[in-house]
Design a protein around this nucleic acid. Structure first.
Lengths: 343, 343
DNA sequence: CTGTTAGCGCATTCAC
DNA sequence: GTGAATGCGCTAACAG
């Protein structure tokens, strides 16, 4: 097999005896040359095996890449496992595919967006990235940024009213002022540890959905005059069964045993329900549990989880649309409370 | 807020009163200048807000991008839904993250890899892409290519011995020469339709895993002297419950009713089992079912599915390693038969 | 150890 | 309509 010549716009132009600009125009600006000549050139290129201007060079020149980086809350691996995140990606990608924009997955554990920012038209950021350095970088980058489920000033964003949702579901779960409430929080701390939360950090992470939800819970708790003990809030670093289970067990074995578990994700609530069932306790008689997200599995659980249903796929679609349209709106997507049997 | 100056290597060099090369070397080739000077320059850049050489320009120059395109069998959306594909991605990304290589998701429905090939170091291709044009393009591209679960000459690849696996599981499922076998195939045809397969195409798609599995089934069927009727092979265009259910119902309502269902994916087998249960038939007494893949849900089903367990995540890891190491091997990953109760 | 120069492949002036 | 020149931001080779 003979070595295939690698054509460039320049070499093609020379071969065809026309100028560079003409070849470039044939591909990019049909109005700049006769139809006849354009078709001639395109046909010749096809014959030679030149498939058009090099995209990398083109992008360098134009400053446009047709790639958007999706900044994930955690490693790529984690996203795949999380149904909520997956649905968001699904929504984003469905819109981008239509616009011929490619999706670059960017891990929330990376330490610098510079690694890709020269390659992309901007960022869609789903949730507060695990590495909080990224937040500042996203705040100051000159590229377009759309955030979902958290907010950094100056940018377009989509999300639900987390505080209100948390407030409503907490009101539903708590019956009397003597209820013993425990909160199983998701990423309240900037740490990999599953542990109790005695003090909240006063940092960037405050803008996260976790804190908005916590505020909502607190609001309900105060309104109902419930006494939330200082040692009844847990931090779970990621929404996986394993991490959740540790906190769930701590909570369920603490004395006096809580009878209301406010969980910041359905996966946490699922872990709680499984554990409660296996302890021989009854839901909701002995313990009431609430979730958050409204994933399919939450509806199939026994009992089904009472949870905040949010449409992640739609959120992804909206985020991508904001990006494509260069909008700067903040969109609030409606949620609804899904009444299961867990409270 | 005053407009921030956008620095380039050149302008920074001028500002600092050194040459371009010196700044470039400070970032890329520490050995080319004194430690002292290097640190000076780096500090100055930090102060100015210059975060290092523009990656796009750097890549254009070096011809290296630190991006690999993951070519999916179908749309991005589909991948997210499919646990087998997700696990593969998980494996790939875990390796690439370590090597600081970014992952670009490329839909198998796109019609030209040129859209990205100037941006990436190469392709990892998972399964035969829905748009078969891509196969030829991958065959002829000058970029690195690693394929998984299918093969195009000249490339590194990973996969299992699909034919052997299908053969073994078919042997397990078929008891006598009078068994009535139906095959629920996954993407046997290059079509979106769920329908019976009377003739196999003689095209590129022949190299696909579906056809290897089919060959394996056939081999077992012939060895056992079973008569496979011409109208007992189905094409299911994608591994979703919905698509599978259509074929499952056709198969179960055909006369005489098959008593062995060879399914090319666990999701198909799950749909079959659900349908068979709801028809009041017994598994495996009335009908035996086999799956393929070994996803978690297959083990939790009732009865658990007898299936070919393949480690998708490991497959992803191997594929990425082949890519990173510029290897050209063909790796065959072992599989094992998972004995559930479905046959 | 440092600076100069020529391109990587292209798109866009601006003349003609 | 067309063609020559300039530069997008950078690196590698070379000369000093």
């Amino acid at each position: 097999m003979t070595e295939k010549k690698v054509w460039t716009l320049k070499s093609v132009a020379k071969e065809l005896g026309v100028s560079n600009a003409t070849v470039s125009n044939a591909f990019n600006r049909p109005d700049q040359l006769s139809k006849r000549k354009r078709e001639d050139i395109l046909a010749s290129c096809e014959r030679l095996g030149y498939s058009g201007p090099n995209k990398a060079a083109q992008s360098l020149r134009k400053g446009q890449f047709n790639i958007v980086a999706l900044v994930l809350p955690d490693s790529v691996e984690y996203m795949i496992t999380d149904p909520v995140a997956s649905n968001f990606v699904k929504g984003v990608s469905s819109v981008l595919e239509k616009s011929k924009v490619n999706l670059l997955l960017f891990s929330g554990t990376s330490d610098n967006i510079n690694a890709v920012s020269d390659f992309v038209d901007g960022f869609i950021c789903y949730g507060s990235p695990r590495n909080t350095k990224l937040i500042d970088q996203l705040r100051t980058t000159s590229k377009k940024v759309v955030t979902a489920d958290f907010d950094i000033e100056r940018n377009a964003s989509v999300g639900i009213d987390n505080q209100q949702a948390a407030y409503e579901i907490a009101k539903l779960a708590i019956n009397t002022k003597d209820d013993l409430v425990a909160i199983l929080g998701l990423r309240l701390l900037d740490s990999n540890l599953t542990c109790r939360v005695y003090d909240l950090p006063n940092t960037d992470i405050q803008c996260s959905i976790a804190h908005q939800r916590l505020n909502g819970y607190h609001k309900a708790i105060e309104e109902l005059n419930v006494d939330l003990r200082a040692d009844r809030v847990w931090n779970i670093p990621q929404s996986t069964h394993h991490s959740a289970l540790i906190a769930v067990r701590e909570a369920l074995t603490s004395t006096p045993r809580p009878n209301v578990l406010l969980c910041m994700s359905d996966l946490i609530a699922l872990a709680a329900i499984k554990e409660i069932n296996s302890m021989g306790l009854n839901i909701p008689e002995d313990i009431r549990v609430t979730g958050f997200d409204g994933i399919d599995e939450a509806l199939r659980s026994n009992p089904p989880i009472t949870t905040v249903h949010q449409n992640s796929e739609k959120k992804g679609i909206k985020a991508a649309e904001l990006f494509i349209n260069r909008a700067t709106d903040s969109i609030i997507i409606p949620f609804h409370i899904e009444h299961g049997g867990s409270c």
